[in-house]
Write a protein that binds this DNA or RNA. Structure first.
Lengths: 206, 206
DNA sequence: TGAGTAACTTACCCGCCCGTAATAACATGG
DNA sequence: CCATGTTATTACGGGCGGGTAAGTTACTCA
């Protein structure tokens, strides 16, 4: 086992590299418009390697999506673990926008949606899975507060839609810092347009 | 000019039919995964006709998108023509959700986004164009109200994201009426989670 | 009725892209 | 230095889908 030549990686290393490269390419062109050749070429490798590791385009895509979903859900779950409802909201928004900033490719993949999986419409964006989990949180919170639990999904999807849409816009401009953007979104969601502060700030420590 | 046989339409009629059919197919599979053959077959016509009328897949898609954009923007513009800020917000949400209900295929096309036009990322969803127009409205309103106009796009994208995301969810469940959903969204956007009413209603007449 | 035109079809080319079979380069242990 | 397993490549089959050329059917009007 001499010094590792640039070419010829171990199976695990190559696999990891392909996931990274695949995520980047999928992020640029979307699932359909991405060819396995482009991924292979982008990884300085020939096609069959991709097939050996993932069985095909769909396999690689599934792994990329799965990992990204796991990551973003964990990141948000940590953010809303403690604090008052308002603080949790703020931290959730901040966590999501932080994810958008730190992992733009992953966010693009999740936001662009799936390979139109066979039967029926099915929702486009993968973030709906996230939305459903958020919906569960809202449902129980609504019950405790005496609200109609049937309306919980509406608010869950509304919140997810807010951060997703703004996140996509932010990846293009990158102008105000994510913290500043998070301030505005959290203010909108918590106070509403009616009581919008001129200079919103988070209430949470940190 | 006898009674029109089912086959053999006039150029204008065929063109109109192809736009309808194309919108439906694009809505189901997205741009990339849609083949011209499928559109032609779905319209009981052979491929070259599509090419004669629109020059190709992209041409038809462009026409479909353009018409849909025009329609939805006009519909929203009418809704926010008059009233207090709050009433305008409520009517805008209601108008958008009404569009989602009445034109699910058009909404799906707009929500799913574009053919990943060549160079650069570019935003996926076509609704960003709508968002920009909304942003203009917000910018001037913000100036008048003494708010930071730089933050206007944030709120514009947040609002668009809300209704888009909820709209997508609604097309799947179709459970609460659009009016009811609009009540909730408008309440969230105007009052915020802080002062959420138990049973939200619109303030507007009608 | 027959020329002329508008609507439409069949048949094809070509390139791309998924997926695979056969094979080669490299490493490592005996 | 050869045996064995692992990593990678070249080369190809097959199919689909965009786009076009040439020919065909129906409809109109003098």
């Amino acid at each position: 086992m001499a010094e590792r030549n640039a070419r010829r990686l171990t199976a695990a290393a190559r696999r990891a590299q392909l996931i990274d490269v695949g995520r980047a390419v999928f992020a640029r062109h979307g699932y359909e418009a991405t060819s396995v050749e482009e991924i292979a070429e982008s990884a300085k490798v020939s096609k069959p390697i991709v097939y050996e590791h993932f069985g095909g385009k769909e396999g690689l895509y599934a792994v990329v999506v799965d990992r990204e979903m796991d990551y973003v859900v964990r990141r948000i779950a940590e953010a809303i673990a403690t604090g008052s409802p308002r603080e949790r909201l703020e931290q959730a928004v901040l966590a999501f926008l932080g994810y958008v900033k730190d992992h733009p490719d992953g966010f693009a993949v999740l936001a662009h949606g799936a390979p139109a999986t066979s039967a029926s419409g099915g929702m486009s964006s993968l973030l709906n899975d996230v939305a459903e989990r958020v919906g569960d949180v809202f449902t129980s919170a609504f019950k405790d507060a005496g609200y109609e639990p049937k309306a919980a999904p509406i608010y869950a999807y509304a919140l997810i839609g807010m951060v997703t849409s703004v996140g996509q816009w932010w990846t293009e401009t990158r102008k105000p810092s994510v913290e500043e953007v998070a301030n505005h979104i959290a203010a909108l969601a918590w106070m509403g347009l009616r009581h919008l502060p001129k200079q919103p700030t988070l209430t949470s420590r940190r």
